[in-house]
């Protein structure tokens, strides 16, 4: 088995090395990949979309249709994780642990036992509970707002600097995951619930498709943002820049919600009660 796999992999590698002998030299400015459509993007994108970051312009405008379906792939991954892992309703058969805050005594309540509901003195804790570190929680509380602000900057400033909806969405999701790790999953679910995450997954894709449909209804092609100039009273080139921003916001919302939802599902194995 191992020798067969090694032979197969060596054959695969040998074929690729053989093919690479015909490749253009690394960094060759006249390589075929750099001659077909990319000069048009480099030379015309600033004049056509007024977006200096060519990657953003090509991602959201010239290849907007492609990016729309990439966003739908991410949305599908979030929905697939929901259907694969989520265990609804059924209460965990294991016993639950409560901590009496004034004394620090831990209570184990087995199945069917009375739960001290709405009591300020009892706090539910995880089965694999470790005492909270003051350093971790305080640092998390300091970092989360700044990382969220940075994420919004990355989404909004993707026209002029590296960044955009994908990166900003991931940073926004990572800030919520950081909160969930530093506190616990229930605190994070109380702040950013599962229902909100699933709704935002759909909302982001809807914003993207609605932007395309709006330009369609205003008389252009689907995702042809130039027609947005009529309702927003601006030039066609500036309207393209605006359309790119709307699309990036949609992508950012979907990516953030899917990342958080994947983490919730994986960290609690679908139960959404106890996490990492």
């Amino acid at each position: 088995m191992k020798t067969a796999a090694a032979l197969l992999v060596l054959l695969f590698g040998g074929l690729l090395v053989y093919a690479s002998l015909e490749f253009p030299a690394w960094g060759d400015p006249m390589a075929p990949a750099s001659r077909h459509v990319s000069p048009h993007y480099i030379e015309r994108s600033l004049a056509e979309t007024s977006v200096p970051n060519i990657v953003t312009a090509v991602l959201a405008d010239y290849r907007g249709y492609d990016t729309m379906f990439e966003t739908i792939v991410i949305f599908t991954a979030g929905v697939a994780c929901l259907f694969l892992l989520r265990i609804f309703g059924r209460r965990s058969s294991e016993s639950r642990l409560y901590r009496h805050l004034p004394t620090g005594i831990t209570l184990r309540i087995s199945r069917g036992g009375a739960v001290p509901l709405s009591s300020k003195e009892f706090e539910r804790i995880d089965l694999q509970w470790v005492p909270y570190s003051v350093v971790v929680r305080t640092t998390c509380r300091l970092i989360v707002p700044f990382s969220q602000l940075f994420a919004l900057y990355v989404i909004a400033h993707g026209h002029h600097s590296p960044g955009g909806g994908f990166q900003g969405g991931v940073i926004l999701g990572a800030s919520i995951i950081l909160f969930a790790i530093a506190n616990n999953l229930r605190a994070s679910l109380a702040w950013f619930s599962e229902k909100l995450a699933v709704l935002l997954c759909g909302l982001g894709v809807s914003i993207y498709v609605a932007t395309g449909a709006l330009s369609f209804l205003l008389g252009g092609n689907f995702l042809d943002y130039g027609t947005l100039s009529k309702p927003f009273a601006m030039g066609a080139v500036a309207a393209r820049s605006l359309g790119i921003l709307m699309v990036e916001i949609g992508v950012g919302i979907t990516v953030m919600a899917v990342m958080v939802h994947l983490y919730y599902g994986l960290a609690s194995a679908g139960r959404h009660d106890e996490g990492l």
Partner: peptide, 26 residues
């Protein structure tokens, strides 16, 4: 490739490691 590097820094080094650790924990 600054945009790709930025994406990989946030996605590959950040979120995928967290997902791996969560799956290994479970």
């Amino acid at each position: 490739a600054v945009d790709v590097a930025f994406t990989e820094a946030s996605v590959g080094a950040g979120v995928s490691t967290v997902l791996f650790v969560a799956a290994v924990f479970r």
